[in-house]
Every structure is written in structure tokens, then in C-alpha cells.
């Protein structure tokens, strides 16, 4: 009980301090939300799973039952992330403006989209519009589902091996599609005998191992974050796991970035013959 009162006081102090520090309404709201939700989720998880590792398998955890189909945790939380993304982008693109007074959300979304475009342009050296649909979706979905772990009861769908393997399978299918589109069938197959034909088995193996590492990196990072938090919950349920959760936000964003970036590197490994020239400077 003392610990809870103490943590309320510290959270209040943190909130007031950051509000004095950040001179911006939206920034203040975001900070307060961040602090409150991390604190709240730590309190809730700490009191609910007192003494036990909360490591129930996310895939088989039953959440909803629709007729004969039981929806597991992974699918359910993926649906939540998809709904948030869809509603947010519908809200923003409902009335796009080019006047001086643009809404906050449109500016934020434009920043995100332009950042993704410039990263794709820098890494692939190709027209970013070709890679934007798949790679932008990867980044937004993984990033949002990693960031939404601050919400109590929400568990990131990326902490399940099924999700990450599905993502890396998508990249694995996109590789030959984009490669053949860029350089033709023969040009694409030349990739496998690149320095000498002796390297053929190694080149084929490296395709599979890179997909394997792509899936396991994301899964392992997200799962280790969840495990570290829940182990800390066992010892000190209130407030001590908070810095680990904030660190989890940073790791989640970096992992989303790394996943999308490596996917672009793999997909655009067979580049087109003539380099892309950007006359419009449109990104």
C-alpha cells in the first residue's frame, strides 16, 4: 500500500515536471498519457500476476469465440492494431488540405510517410513508390504494435513467432517478385551465381537464413522485453519495471525500423539496370 501511494506521488511529480518542461499542449498530453499508462499497466500486471511469469502462449490464448472458431491472442491483437491504423489513416485522408492551416494529424502523418519514403530512397536507390506499400506497412504495423504495449492488457502481436514468420514469408515472396520486375528472370537468377557458380548453394542458403534471422530477431527482441518486465514484476511490481517499459518503447521502434530496412535491402538486392532519377524530388 505504501508503495502504491509512493508511486502515485512519483508519477504526479514526473507528470508535473514534464509538463513544465514541455511547452506544448499535444506534447503534454502525450507525455502524461505515456507516464500514466506505463505506471497503470505496471500496477495492474503487478497485482494480477503476483508471483507468476505471465508467459501464456499468445497464439493459443483464447480471447473470442465466434461460432466454431476460437480467436487466439495473436490474431485478436493484430486486429486491434489493424483497426487503429485503418481508422487513423481514414480520419487523416478524409479531408486532406494543401492550405496553410493543416490539421495536426495530417502534419504528423505526412512526416511519417515522408520519412519512410526518404529512407526507402536512400537504401534502395530506386523509386520509393514501388516499395512504399509493403515496406511502409511493415514499419507502421510493427512500430504501432510495439508502441501499443504501453496500453494495459495489450500484448504485442510481434511477440509471437507466428506473426514474425508470416512477415518474413511475405518478404521472402516479395524478393523474387521485385527482383524479376527489376531485372527480368535471367537477371534475377544471375544473383545466385553472382561471383562464381561455386557460390550457388551458399547464395540459396543465405536467402533462407536471412529470412530466418529476420523473423527470430523481431520475435526474440519483443519476447525478451516482455520477459524482463514480467520478471521484474515478480520482485518489485510497482514503478521499478517502468524504465524497462520505456526502454521497450525505444527497442520496439528500433526493431520496426531495422525490420523494414533489412526487408528493403533484401527486396531491392537486385536493382534495375538504369538508376532511378528523381526529377520531381517528390519525397
Amino acid at each position: 500500500m505504501t508503495a502504491i501511494i509512493l508511486s502515485v506521488m512519483i508519477v504526479l511529480a514526473l507528470g508535473i515536471g514534464t509538463c513544465l518542461w514541455v511547452k506544448n499542449t499535444i506534447g503534454r498530453c502525450l507525455l502524461i498519457f505515456l507516464i500514466l499508462s506505463t505506471w497503470w499497466s505496471s500496477v495492474i500486471i503487478g497485482t494480477e500476476s503476483s508471483g507468476g511469469l505471465d508467459l501464456e502462449n499468445l497464439d493459443t490464448m483464447p480471447i473470442l469465440t465466434i461460432g466454431p472458431v476460437t480467436v487466439g491472442g495473436t490474431v485478436f491483437y493484430s486486429w486491434i492494431v489493424m483497426a487503429v491504423l485503418t481508422v487513423l489513416s481514414w480520419l487523416v485522408t478524409r479531408r486532406l488540405k494543401t492550405t496553410l492551416h493543416v490539421s495536426y494529424l495530417q502534419t504528423a502523418m505526412e512526416m511519417v510517410v515522408m520519412a519512410i519514403r526518404s529512407q526507402i530512397k536512400a537504401v534502395s536507390g530506386d523509386n520509393p513508390a514501388r516499395y512504399m506499400p509493403i515496406m511502409g506497412t511493415f514499419f507502421l504495423f510493427i512500430g504501432l504494435s510495439n508502441l501499443m504495449t504501453v496500453i494495459p492488457w495489450f500484448r504485442a502481436p510481434t511477440a509471437s513467432l507466428s506473426t514474425t514468420v508470416a512477415f518474413s514469408l511475405c518478404v521472402f515472396c516479395a524478393m523474387p517478385i521485385y527482383g524479376i520486375r527489376n531485372a527480368g528472370v535471367i537477371g534475377y537468377l544471375k544473383k545466385y551465381i553472382d561471383p562464381t557458380p561455386v557460390m550457388l548453394p551458399l547464395n540459396i542458403l543465405s536467402d533462407f537464413s536471412s529470412m530466418f534471422s529476420l523473423a527470430f530477431r523481431l520475435y526474440g527482441n519483443m519476447l525478451s522485453g516482455a520477459i524482463i518486465t514480467s520478471i521484474l514484476m515478480m520482485f518489485v511490481p510497482v514503478l521499478v519495471p517502468l524504465p524497462m517499459q520505456i526502454l521497450g518503447l525505444v527497442t520496439g521502434t528500433i526493431q520496426a525500423y531495422v525490420f523494414a530496412l533489412l526487408a528493403i535491402v533484401y527486396v531491392s538486392s537486385v536493382s534495375p539496370k538504369q538508376p532511378f532519377e528523381d526529377h520531381l524530388n517528390f519525397y
Binding site: S213, F216, R217, G220, S224, I254, V258
Partner: peptide, 8 residues
């Protein structure tokens, strides 16, 4: 991230 994947 690539180096870390070994630890992962």
C-alpha cells in the same frame, strides 16, 4: 541488430 541476432 545483425550482431544482436546471434544473442537472440
Amino acid at each position: 541488430a545483425m550482431v544482436e541476432s546471434t544473442a537472440i
